[in-house]
Design a protein around this nucleic acid. Structure first.
Length: 367
DNA sequence: AAATCGGGGGG
DNA sequence: CCCCCAGATTT
């Protein structure tokens, strides 16, 4: 069991002392008005929770509106193509969410008769729905008495109960879940969960918590210890490497440009890209250009002109994408191993889903 | 348990 | 530059 740092003469926390009513009252008064709070439609709640995974509220709002405008119901989504969904998702990141959401929508339509299940165990069986999302949808849309522990809730609980450790692994989350179980107000778990998240988002901030305005007040053990910002403990930071890659804007005589579709798994899966790839150790960009384009497409290029370098930060590496314009030397026939490709006009490129870096490369090439 | 998977906003 | 965000999945 994860340790509780109840040293220093501070009494161990009593779950019974948790000011549930105070928190709920604060939430009723201060809750932000957000699009997904105007409804209890399970599809809309589900969509919001998936979009909000590792993504800020302010970022999600416009995507949420646009997505619902395009796919108003789970059956409308289930009938969509992956490329349509990815295009609407473009620049929101973590594109596996979009592909899994589409898969899950098809499952709901095909095996649940279009009815989104209400129990967390069944929800968690859907692609892209983990413990948090299952609890959130179940409690918010269906009023089930289950917890939903996201990063905000984890931080609030770690502080209130002065819990040592990171508490982000399965064991830690199970412990927090056990802590919440006796606190959850029956029939109001949806509001309670959202209240905890809202508190983490606007009061119990990671760096500088606004303790003076906190409805949990003097009961918070981290505040009593006078060190709320030290909970939960942080992961060690690993330094991220810089990786170099090239992108080839290859034009044909009709002024179309060659695009290839990425693999269905891995980074930016199923999005489109310009031909090219990562540099081998010690390789110069021009060499990378010729080699990676030939490897990927079978095409030999000529007349390469350097257009510029796009810098982009991913979670576990930083990218420097060197962009070149060029034309085909010899046959325009694309390799059989390159499954999905197309010669696209600039107008068509704008309608295909691209990652941020490739989109910037397109801008550099004035496409 | 650790790595992977995006992108943007704020300090 | 750094950090973190309504996490899930794979290795």
């Amino acid at each position: 069991m994860p340790g509780i740092s109840g040293s220093g003469g501070v009494p161990a926390p009593e779950p019974g002392s948790f000011p549930v009513e105070g928190l709920l009252a604060w939430y009723r008064l201060h809750r932000r008005s957000l699009p997904w709070r105007e409804t209890r439609d399970p599809y809309r709640v589900w969509l919001s929770e998936v979009m909000l995974q590792q993504t800020r509220v302010s970022t999600v709002v416009p995507y949420y509106e646009r997505f619902l405008n395009r796919f108003p119901t789970v059956s409308a989504l289930a009938a969509a193509s992956e490329e349509e969904v990815l295009k609407v998702w473009e620049n929101l990141g973590y594109y596996a969410r979009a592909r899994q959401l589409l898969k899950a929508a098809k499952i709901v339509v095909d095996t649940y008769a279009g009815i989104i299940p209400d129990r967390p165990e069944e929800l968690a069986g859907l692609p892209g729905v983990g413990a948090y999302t299952a609890g959130a949808v179940s409690s918010i849309a269906f009023g089930q008495d289950v917890p939903a522990i996201d990063g905000n809730v984890r931080r609030v609980l770690c502080r209130y109960f002065a819990l040592a450790g990171i508490m982000a692994d399965k064991e830690g989350l199970r412990y927090l879940s056990g802590l919440l179980a006796p606190i959850l107000p029956p029939g109001r778990a949806g509001d309670f969960n959202q209240a905890l998240m809202e508190l983490g988002a606007v009061i119990c901030l990671p760096r500088e918590p606004l303790c003076a305005d906190c409805p949990l007040g003097e009961n918070c053990l981290a505040r009593i210890h006078d060190a709320p910002e030290t909970f939960p403990s942080r992961r060690e930071k690993k330094k991220v490497p810089v990786r170099h890659a090239v992108a080839a804007v290859i034009r044909d005589p009709l002024d179309r440009v060659l695009l290839v579709k990425r693999q269905h798994r891995g980074l930016l899966a199923s999005l489109w890209k310009f031909p090219g790839g990562f540099a081998e150790p010690g390789e110069e960009p021009v060499q990378t250009l010729a080699r990676s384009v030939r490897d990927e497409t079978g095409i030999d290029i000529r007349d390469d002109v350097f257009l510029g370098t796009v810098r982009h930060a991913y979670t576990h590496f930083r990218l420097r994408l060197h962009v070149f314009s060029c034309s085909v030397s010899g046959s325009r026939q694309v390799n059989g191993s390159c499954k999905d490709y197309r010669w696209a006009f600039p107008g068509e490129i704008r309608d295909l889903p691209l990652g941020r870096a490739d989109r910037q490369a397109a801008d550099l090439a004035r496409l």
